[in-house]
Design a protein around this nucleic acid. Structure first.
Lengths: 141, 141
DNA sequence: TTTAAATCATACTAAATTAGTAGGAATTGA
DNA sequence: TCAATTCCTACTAATTTAGTATGATTTAAA
């Protein structure tokens, strides 16, 4: 399972960006202060966010980052996958040593983890950046 | 997030135990062979499972472990929490340094992670050991 | 035109966690 | 008695995560 502070920080930073999107580009040092995340670490994260077209940068003094899309168009899943690669409990099939080899009763729990992955990804698909900024209840179904 | 191979192995081992429950106590060396998990590692895991009253042991030769309850009474969540402590994305409140301190806009994403935890725990609450052994589709809703 | 504020990029490192080993004691059926 | 088994604790290797370090590039503004 790949779901660590990097993913959390990314979501926090994007939420911060969304909150302050009306005052021009937001610098990472601002975010660093507000969210208490080290600046160089943020830089790494934003490199990935940029490569995934979630933000665009404005270089030089008074520069910073802006959202590429509006907050209601950005899904949490987009952010997570941009920095964290994937949400996956198993990596079967590749090598027969680690994970399961998908035959016999060995992988009796295979489906379980697959479905958990789906479940989590589903959750992240449903929630938009907008939902966080509005601070409203998410998924009250 | 605490959801690692230890939790996976525990579920696999319990599923194995459920599959062979009719032939008396199942030894860890059997499970080790069938599920390809190292024996001493299994021992650690079963210590916890026993302390949580999910299995009972039969010591000595021809000994092994048996389920304490029937497979349809054991939830996956019971197994996970027995070995993995908890499923939690954040640990706020304790120290103000790590996690968030729960005030101001800092914890804009607090609810999100709380709800994800609930979501995952929900999933594990719904699935019973029985469901794995039967190999039927879980949560087809 | 200089300077300071910012992004961009890569490489390195420390800390923490996970996964697994080692070693041996206790128990018990055959 | 002996072999198979659980029980228990401590240690260690490997991996991952989180964060630093370093320095180049860009650009608004003084």
């Amino acid at each position: 399972m790949k779901l660590t502070t990097k993913g959390r920080y990314a979501v926090m930073a994007m939420a911060d960006l969304a909150s302050f999107k009306d005052q021009g580009p937001v610098s990472l040092s601002d975010i660093s202060l507000r969210q208490n995340i080290s600046l160089p670490y943020l830089e790494q994260i934003f490199l990935k966010l940029k490569n995934n077209n979630l933000v665009k940068s404005v270089r030089g003094a008074k520069g910073g980052y802006k959202l590429e899309l509006s907050p209601d168009e950005i899904k949490i899943s987009n952010i997570i996958s941009a920095v964290d690669e994937e949400v996956k409990m198993l990596n079967c099939k590749k090598d027969s040593k680690k994970g399961c080899n998908n035959k016999s009763s060995k992988c009796i729990t295979h489906n379980l983890w697959d479905q958990l992955d789906q479940h989590i990804n589903n959750f992240f698909e449903k929630v938009k950046l907008q939902d966080l900024v509005k601070k409203k209840q998410i998924l009250n179904k």
